[in-house]
C-alpha cells in the first residue's frame, strides 16, 4: 500500500501510518503547521528548535532513540517515518 500524494511514494503501509502519526504530532501536539505539507524538506519548513522538538516528540511517541546522524539525515517527514518504522517495536505503532 502506498499513501496518497507524491510525498508518500515508496512508503510501505507501516511507514505511511507512522508518517501520518508524525504529521499529527507536529500539527496537534506541537502546533507546527509548517511541518504538515507533504514532502516539504524539514530543514526549510522548521527552524532548529522546532525540528528538535519534533524529533524528541517522535522519539517519545514511538519509544525509539534516533542517533543525531540519523535524525539529521532525515530530509523530509517521510524519511523520518522510514527511520522510525525501521526501529520502533510493533506495539508502538498507531
Amino acid at each position: 500500500m502506498v499513501s496518497g500524494g507524491a510525498s508518500g511514494e515508496g512508503l510501505t503501509g507501516r511507514e505511511a501510518r507512522v508518517a501520518a502519526e508524525i504529521r499529527r504530532i507536529a500539527r496537534e501536539d506541537l502546533g507546527l503547521e509548517a511541518a504538515a505539507p507533504a514532502g516539504a524538506p524539514l530543514a526549510s519548513a522548521l527552524d532548529s528548535l522546532a525540528l528538535l522538538s519534533l524529533v524528541v516528540a517522535v522519539e517519545d511517541r514511538f519509544r525509539v532513540a534516533l542517533s543525531d546522524e540519523a535524525a539529521a539525515g532525515a530530509r523530509s517527514l517521510e524519511d523520518l517515518a522510514r527511520l522510525v518504522a525501521a526501529r520502533a517495536a510493533p506495539e508502538a505503532f498507531p
Partner: peptide
C-alpha cells in the same frame, strides 16, 4: 519521566 531519549537532552 517525560522523555524516552534522555541522552538527546543531555547533549543539548
Amino acid at each position: 519521566a517525560r522523555h524516552y531519549n534522555v541522552e538527546r537532552l543531555a547533549e543539548l
